[in-house]
């Protein structure tokens, strides 16, 4: 292996750092997963007005609480990113970054807790994914979203470990992008399943 290369000396200037760019490309394909799925749901919902009866039974209060939880956690991720940037210049800010990242992770767990209660409540009332097509979609889409939240929590925990030691601070932003995406998906899921 030859002497270490400094990328800036040999490559054209990169507009966006590789990690962030890769996350954006990845998210663009994630958008198509949820976009396609939600579009399908909307079309079927319009075709089947009778689904309204089932949709009325979703727990709007818990959905609203969960919306607030996720939005707030997104705010904390933004703050964590803000302090992580500062910590790159002055390491004492890493405490702040780690504090807000921890809060975001905590709210993520709260979201999953409420979501689990919701599932429990539905299943104990005899509503299952097999009840009808609306509930199949409900369980599948919110389940897939919940799975993404879980993955987001794992990513955040993994980044958190580094932030506490003050290394790899740029990863807060990349993990944050993913977390915001999960949040945005919920912004579409919430009105479609809980409000409409």
């Amino acid at each position: 292996m030859s002497a270490p290369i400094n990328p800036e000396d040999i490559y054209e200037k990169a507009e966006v750092p590789s990690g962030r760019l890769a996350m954006w490309w990845f998210l663009s394909s994630e958008v198509c997963v949820f976009g396609g799925l939600l579009a399908v749901f909307v079309m079927l919902r319009l075709k089947n007005p009778i689904w309204e009866e089932s949709a009325a039974k979703t727990l709007t209060v818990i959905g609203t609480i969960n919306t607030l939880l996720l939005l707030t956690s997104s705010l904390f991720i933004v703050l964590a990113h803000h302090y992580a940037e500062k910590a790159m210049k002055d390491i004492k800010f890493k405490e702040h970054a780690s504090y807000y990242l921890g809060l975001a992770i905590f709210l993520g767990f709260c979201f999953l807790g409420f979501k689990s209660f919701e599932y429990y409540n539905e299943l104990s009332h005899g509503v299952t994914p097999l009840t009808n097509l609306f509930w199949s979609f409900y369980f599948f889409i919110t389940g897939l979203h919940g799975f993404h939240v879980l993955i987001g929590i794992f990513i955040n925990l993994w980044v958190w470990k580094d932030v506490k030691q003050g290394v790899n601070l740029q990863r807060v932003e990349i993990a944050g992008l993913y977390w915001h995406f999960v949040d945005v998906v919920w912004i579409f899921v919430f009105p479609l399943f809980y409000v409409a």
Binding site: C32, L37, F140
Partner: peptide, 23 residues
């Protein structure tokens, strides 16, 4: 990357139809 997403979701739905009994 832009076309495979819906089919990935669709293949999970297919798997659920086959194993969990959804329709």
């Amino acid at each position: 990357m832009f076309s495979v997403g819906p089919l990935l979701a669709g293949s999970i739905m297919m798997l659920l139809d086959r194993t969990a009994g959804t329709s």
